[in-house]
Design a binder for these strands. Structure first.
Lengths: 167, 167
DNA sequence: ATAGATGCAAAAGATTTGCCCAGGT
DNA sequence: ACCTGGGCAAATCTTTTGCATCTAT
C-alpha cells in the first residue's frame, strides 16, 4: 500500500513533483523542503490513520534523512493549517489523516482495532441543532463508535491497545 | 464546592463512613484502604471532570498522606471496574467522572473550556442503528461537541489548552 | 542574504512500575 | 498472618524544544 507510490504522471525518477498535500502546502505558502515533500507524499498516499511513528517509518523508507522531530513538527504545522486532522482512537499516540471536505466518522472494531469510515450528513445537521438548543454555536464535533462484529466467535486479537489500523 | 464535603450523616468526625463510590468499590470486593476511601469521597463529591492532578489536590486536602501514584493506580482500577469513566477533552491530561446509568454527552466551550453536560436518548438508538448498518454491534460510543457562545464578543480566554472545567 | 527548517539530543509532561514497607481482611 | 495496596523514586512513553547548522526563496 506504500510500495508503488510516487509513480505519478510527472518527472519519473526523483520523488519530486508535488503530491496532493504537497500542493496544499504550497497554496498556504509553506516553504517546501525535501522532508516536507516526502512527508506530504506519505500523507497523500496514506489511506489509513497513521501515528507519527508510522509516518516516520514510511517517510524514512522514501528518504532516510528525516528525523522524527521533523515529522512531529510537520504534522503539527499541517494541523494548524487545517491540512491534517488529529485523531485519538485510544492507545496513547495521536493519529493523523488528511482533512476532507465531507465530514466523515469512524467506527473502531474493538477486537481488531480496525477503523471503518462512514458518512452521515443528517448527523451534522442534528448535532448543530443540538448545540443551538444548548445556546452554543457549533464549532466542531467528534463522534466515534466502538463496535464488534456480531455472532461469529470474535477473534480475541489485540484489544485496541497499540497501533493497528484498517484493512 | 469541595470545602464542606465529609459532613455526611454518619459518624461525624472521621472521614470514615462510605461515599457513594466507596460503596460501589466494596460491592466489587475492593479492599477499602484509607486512601481509597478518600479518593472515593472526592470522586463522589465531584460535579465536574477533574484530572488526576486535581483529584490529587482535592484528596490531599482531606488527607495529606496520599501520593499521586496511588491516585493514578486508583482511577485506573476504578475505570477497569466500570466505576469511573475516562474522558479526553483535549489538553493532554485524562479526566474522570463517575459512570452513570443514563448516557450523557459533553459540549465543550472552546473559549472558556467549560463543559456542559446534556442527554439525548434518541441519539443512542440512532447510533446503535448506524453501527448495525455497518455490520457491527455497538459496544460504546463517544460524542463531543465543541461550541462557542454566539454574538457577544467572546472572551479571548484560555482557548481550551490546559485544565479548566465547568462553572 | 535571510528567515525559516532540520537534526540531534536533552527536556518536558503524563503515566507506569519496581521495590520494600504498611495496613486491610 | 497473608496478601494486597501504598510511598517514593526511577523508568517509560510520547511530544516538544534549544541550539548550531543548513536551505528554500
Amino acid at each position: 500500500m506504500v510500495s508503488e507510490a510516487r509513480l505519478e504522471e510527472k518527472r519519473p525518477g526523483r520523488v519530486s513533483a508535488e503530491s496532493r498535500i504537497g500542493r496544499l502546502c504550497m497554496e498556504r505558502g509553506l516553504k517546501m523542503t525535501g522532508q516536507r515533500r516526502v512527508i506530504a507524499q506519505v500523507l497523500s498516499d496514506a489511506e489509513d490513520h497513521p501515528d507519527v511513528e508510522e509516518l516516520y517509518r514510511r517517510a524514512s523508507h522514501l528518504d532516510a534523512r528525516i528525523s522524527i522531530a521533523t515529522v512531529y513538527r510537520t504534522v503539527r504545522l499541517l494541523e494548524e493549517k487545517g491540512i491534517l486532522e488529529r485523531r485519538d482512537f485510544g492507545g496513547g499516540r495521536a493519529r493523523y489523516e488528511a482533512s476532507e471536505p465531507g465530514h466523515h466518522y469512524h467506527l473502531i472494531d474493538v477486537d481488531s482495532g480496525k477503523v471503518v469510515e462512514f458518512e452521515d450528513a443528517e448527523h451534522v445537521a442534528l448535532i448543530r441543532k443540538l448545540a443551538e438548543r444548548l445556546g452554543f454555536e457549533l464549532v466542531s464535533h467528534r463522534l466515534e463508535l466502538f463496535g464488534r462484529r456480531p455472532a461469529a466467535g470474535h477473534s480475541v486479537d489485540e484489544p485496541l491497545s497499540r497501533n493497528k489500523d484498517e484493512a
